[in-house]
Design a protein around this nucleic acid. Structure first.
Lengths: 342, 342
DNA sequence: ACTTTCATTGACAACGCTGTCAGCTTGCTG
DNA sequence: CAGCAAGCTGACAGCGTTGTCAATGAAAGT
């Protein structure tokens, strides 16, 4: 039978260290104004008793729940979420915060009520908002009304006074498009992302810039609207390939759609990349595992999530450094779904 | 400006209803021995004041955290996890429970300490243990020592006195194998799953039974060990295809490995399913989106997770119905990666 | 009518922490 | 060496519930 000692409380620690409970509280919470010797004494008995502060009492007494919420779109690519969650968790856990997930099915007419309920029930102190939640106008509005700070990941428009985690989608898209141009492609199809996501516009902008810089004409016919899902990618690809003069390369705004493009191409007996080069965005778990492996752009999502959670916690803890973060760099990953035009 | 009323407490509700706080507590917790009229009065003022019990106070006073933990292997297929989480959440949330996720990187020599820390920090009252966690001997042992109940999902050996959620992997594997046999395949390769997962043995058993029942010889040469990941599937496929008399069909114990098989086949210029039929297990998000779409087996994971969470909560709440659950049925999904032998 | 028995209700003490504020030490300053 | 500010420490009152147990009231038995 394991010692099964009754959980030690702050009283036990205080008695053992010969100080008051308040002093223990100070030490445990890293507050100033405790002599080093006292601090050591307390820390020792904390260790010896394996003292673990009771979170409920802490919250009740101190009004702080130390809960960070991560709301996300349920349809979201899960490997993205996984990275997001792992990154945020890696910061929250050692900082003594609990990270709570809440999926949302979009579009959701009652989104405000759902988030409010979640925030209230779970006593969320701060939110991490992956795209597109930072861009839906109701969400930031609600959180501001509730006075809950948040960190928006890749929002279209960085909210002033809030934490914004950005990455240079535009530059990455530019590089990817230039890569195709360098490979000799002239007619390059583009499938836009979901209009609610800030990244969509940026990726499209990078594509246009690359065309322009390289003196290629922009043709609206080669551009189709997609919604970041496989089916919309497949549909858009079908339209592009039905064109009298179909593109020799298609750039999809994410990998799910790129997979849809590959699917459609294969269905038509087209050889990828022989007959059609295809590239995407995101470097999903499956991007390297479908055939052919996909040329794509990798975002440092884990680091972005870590930064988001870190800044958010800093804000919640009041250690407000408030330095505006530089955008994260994306990386073009070249695989076998793209090739030089024969 | 929204009413921003100071959050109502149990006192406010009690005053308004003209009863004591204890009575309010009884009503809110659905305890017996409250006259119907009183109950109604209380419920009305609860509604009118939008009363929400303070979870911290509740936990401090009542010793119940209402936290359910879901630990999982981080490498786990995401769509599986997503279903698992959504299913469990769908039960936990309305029941007033918080569902907390905790990824684990296996193998983990300190797994016991990690889980213990998590359980203590998060004050987890009960765990949902997806495979293979229910099968690692340390984990159930630890939880029993800590007196934390758990619901194991598809464990190899159902633990008595605990909640076990099973599904008939064996029968599904049997059907899938018979499907291939019916299509005329005689040499059917099999890639085993990770030995830590209970499902692996069952799927293998189903394969062997189907061979036997249909009078086909079992050849160990056609069986390779895999580990549920893409790479091991690819490697195993390479070995099988290098055989002097390679199989005309390969059955992989999950879709990740099946994708690896497809990848390998494509790399060798083989036509799927023309030259090689391939089937998997799990019906992953991507199973229908790779080319060709994969014949596979779908588990009702969402329902399994719902059941797991539901039974666990029943146990935690003391409403112990303790009926042994019947195994869930899997469904064979026939797509285009399998075809009759020409 | 007079107990006895339950169902119903309430008073009040935990629960384990943090915030407030007062008191005690130090170390300086003049 | 008094006087004062700043550093350090502790006493104690909450925080919003639930558990315990006693009080009350109503129903049933004699």
């Amino acid at each position: 039978m394991t010692p099964e000692r009754t959980k030690a409380t702050i009283f036990d620690v205080a008695r053992r260290a010969g100080v008051s409970i308040k002093t223990v509280s100070r030490v445990v919470n890293n507050e100033p104004n405790v002599r080093q010797r006292t601090r050591d004494k307390v820390l020792r008995s904390v260790r010896e008793l394996r003292y673990l502060p009771n979170a409920a009492a802490r919250e009740l007494g101190g009004k702080r729940s130390r809960v960070v919420g991560l709301i996300y779109e349920n349809a979201q690519e899960f490997s993205y979420l996984n990275d997001l969650f792992n990154g945020a968790l890696r910061i929250c856990e050692p900082a003594g915060y609990t990270l709570l997930l809440r999926p949302l099915t979009l579009p959701d007419p009652e989104i405000v009520e759902h988030i409010r309920q979640f925030a209230l029930n779970a006593r969320v102190e701060g939110f991490v908002l992956p795209a597109p939640l930072g861009d839906l106008p109701e969400v930031p509005a609600l959180l501001r009304e509730m006075k809950i700070p948040f960190a928006a990941i890749t929002p279209r428009e960085p909210a002033p006074d809030e934490i914004n985690i950005l990455c240079n989608d535009e530059a990455a898209s530019f590089s990817l498009t230039e890569l195709l141009i360098d490979q000799g492609h002239r007619a390059i199809g583009f499938i836009k992302g979901h209009p609610d996501h800030g990244a969509s516009a940026k990726r499209f902008a990078g594509y246009r810039q690359a065309l322009k810089k390289n003196g290629l004409p922009y043709s609206a016919r080669l551009v189709r609207q997609g919604y970041f899902d496989f089916d919309s990618g497949q549909t858009a690809a079908a339209r592009l390939l039905d064109l009298p003069q179909p593109p020799s390369a298609i750039l999809a705004s994410n990998d799910d759609m790129a997979a849809g493009v590959i699917f459609e191409a294969r269905g038509r007996g087209l050889n990828v990349p022989g007959d059609l080069s295809i590239a995407g965005f995101d470097d999903t778990r499956f991007s390297s595992r479908i055939w052919p492996p996909l040329t794509t752009v990798r975002q440092p999502i884990v680091r972005m999530a870590e930064t988001a959670a870190g800044l958010l916690i800093d804000k919640l803890d009041g250690s407000d450094t408030a330095k505006p973060e530089a955008p994260f760099e994306c990386e073009v990953v070249i695989r076998e779904s793209t090739a030089s035009l024969a």
